[in-house]
């Protein structure tokens, strides 16, 4: 993918909460216009903190952020006008009606009334039939859609979705992915956080991994998969084994399926994958096999191994 102009530039961002806890330890990040960026990281990594600073809910302790060329502190009107935020928690005015709360948001961002546009987003989000319902009468998934409608009400160039699919059923999650895809078609830059790896895998152009307040990796998703992608080789044995023969220690294989399979993890980028030598060794040992198959590891595996490396270091 050709590199496009940055729409968000985060430099040296730090945050220490009043408790003294350091939630961000110098984060640098560029978000490109029009991309979908997935921010991954375990609980408490600092994802929400970073988003909250960019959007204006939390003050940075150090560093700077510009959004669409506007410094978030000196020119907050410029930066905030460009952003729509769907926070992690469902915060709604329970007694308000759907259409009123969405119209309110548009006004809050200084945009002139546009009933046709509000109708469009409510229809896109399947909220049009519920427009006169009070928010408290809606289900959790519907409330989340209302929050998305509010965030989109002022036609932002950038949309932040902090765990858009947390606590959402499979169907709604698919809907959400579809919606995000459609928004991207209209040129909106999307930054989302998630714990579901398949979500990042499905949608993101680039992935950032944050852990303990540090951005430990930013990579295009496909490159990341390739670079860090491990494959696993499963050997289905003719006869089950009770234990891994000591001769196979070098490959660190694992016994699976009650001894009917052995699994070997290898790095596709390595000079020697070790696959052929392993198979040769199996032949030498007289271990017969019926089938072989290889599998690409998912982002989740990559992510888990990254975080573990980080912890070990």
């Amino acid at each position: 993918m050709p590199r496009m102009a940055s729409i968000i530039t985060v430099s040296g961002l730090t945050k220490s909460y009043a408790s003294g806890f350091q939630a961000l330890k110098g984060v640098d990040l560029e978000i490109e216009e029009g991309e979908i960026f997935a921010l991954l990281g375990p609980n408490g990594a600092g994802k929400t903190t970073m988003i909250s600073i960019i959007c204006g809910n939390v003050r940075a302790t150090g560093g700077s952020v510009t959004v669409a060329g506007h410094d978030i502190v000196r020119d907050y009107r410029g930066s905030r006008s460009a952003i729509g935020l769907v926070p992690q928690e469902l915060h709604t005015d329970a007694f308000e009606r759907v259409i009123d709360t969405v119209t309110f948001s548009r006004g809050l961002f200084g945009k002139p009334r546009n009933d046709a546009y509000i109708e469009k987003i409510l229809r896109d989000l399947s909220l049009w039939d519920k427009r006169h319902s009070k928010i408290l009468e809606l289900s959790g998934g519907m409330k989340r859609r209302v929050m998305i409608a509010k965030a989109l009400s002022h036609e932002p160039r950038i949309l932040f979705l902090d765990e858009p699919t947390a606590g959402v059923d499979v169907e709604l999650r698919r809907d959400m992915w579809k919606l995000i895809g459609e928004l991207r078609q209209t040129g909106v830059t999307i930054i989302l956080t998630t714990h579901y790896i398949e979500e990042a895998e499905e949608m993101a152009d680039r992935v950032g991994v944050i852990d303990k307040g540090e951005l430990i990796l930013v990579e295009e998703k496909t490159a990341l998969m390739k670079k860090l992608g491990k494959k696993s080789l499963t050997v289905v044995l003719a006869e089950p084994l009770a234990a891994v023969p000591p001769e196979l220690a070098e490959w660190q294989v694992a016994l699976k399926a009650d001894g009917h399979e052995i699994e070997y993890l290898f790095d596709t980028q390595a000079e020697r994958t070790g696959v052929s030598s392993l198979l040769r060794k199996l032949g030498d040992l007289g271990i017969g096999y019926k089938d072989l198959n290889t599998q690409q590891s998912s982002l989740e595996d990559i992510f888990v191994s990254l975080v573990h490396q980080e912890k070990a270091a």
Partner: peptide
């Protein structure tokens, strides 16, 4: 819901 006010221009 103050998040919205704080994130608005």
């Amino acid at each position: 819901t103050i998040y919205e006010l704080l994130s608005a221009p």
